[in-house]
Simulated assay, not measured.
Amino acid sequence: MIGIVDYGMGNLRSVANAFLKMDIKAEITDKPGDIDSYDRLVLPGVGAFGKCLENLKDNGLYEVTVDFIKSGKPFLGICVGMQLLFEKSYEYGEYNGMGIFPGAVKKFEIKKEGEYKIPHMGWNSLVLKKRHPLIEDIRDGEYMYFVHSYYAPVCDFSVATAEYAGVEFSALVVRENVAATQFHPEKSQQAGLKILKNFGEWKC
């Protein structure tokens, strides 16, 4: 069973329904005591980094999520749920993240007015950097759906990247049992559903 962490900052029902379409059992929970019982865990996120972090901690879900990551069981962060896994964010201040992945989350800088818009919203193509079970049957150049104003840097754990406003950023990162996507797989049609299916079958 896959658990989807409910801390008031995620597109939870869409994620749960996407797993259901792949015949994968998943349920939403806001109970810290439930977290350890799941085989896999998903941390979605919509909104500002600092508020997501605050809500996780206020609802008693931060430490149990970190403990789940340390357990070695498969874990997936989505959008801000991915950014929380990096060392730091500069979104409306400076915040420390979980530090699973190296680097700081920063805002896209638009150098020429009208050239790009923030947030980066819509379809963008992936550049596959290395092979991994999570991108099985995903082709280089595959389009995924993004909604974000801040981005995570490319690092040694970047499996796929994308580019916007002249910046290459991490679109999919994996380190041992921890994976995360900047794009929304639940909104990315068949390609996104395939990544969720791959996560449901991932033996890390």
Rank of each mutant, 00 (worst) to 15 (best):
M1F: 09
M1R: 13
I2M: 02
G3D: 01
G3E: 02
D6T: 00
Y7W: 08
R13I: 14
R13Y: 15
R13K: 13
V15P: 00
L20T: 12
D30T: 00
D34L: 06
Y38R: 07
Y38S: 04
P44D: 09
G47L: 01
F49M: 08
C52Q: 08
L53Y: 01
K57G: 03
G60V: 11
L61D: 00
L61V: 00
Y62I: 09
E63R: 05
V64E: 07
V64W: 07
D67E: 15
G72R: 09
G72A: 04
C79G: 06
E87N: 13
G99Q: 13
G103Y: 10
A104Q: 07
V105R: 10
E109C: 07
E109N: 15
K117I: 12
H120F: 11
M121H: 08
M121T: 12
G122W: 06
L126I: 10
L128G: 06
P133S: 11
P133F: 12
E136T: 13
Y143P: 03
Y145C: 09
V147D: 10
A152L: 10
A152N: 10
A152R: 08
Y164P: 07
A165P: 02
F169L: 15
L172G: 01
V173Y: 03
E186N: 00
L193A: 03
I195P: 01
I195V: 15
K197F: 11
N198H: 14
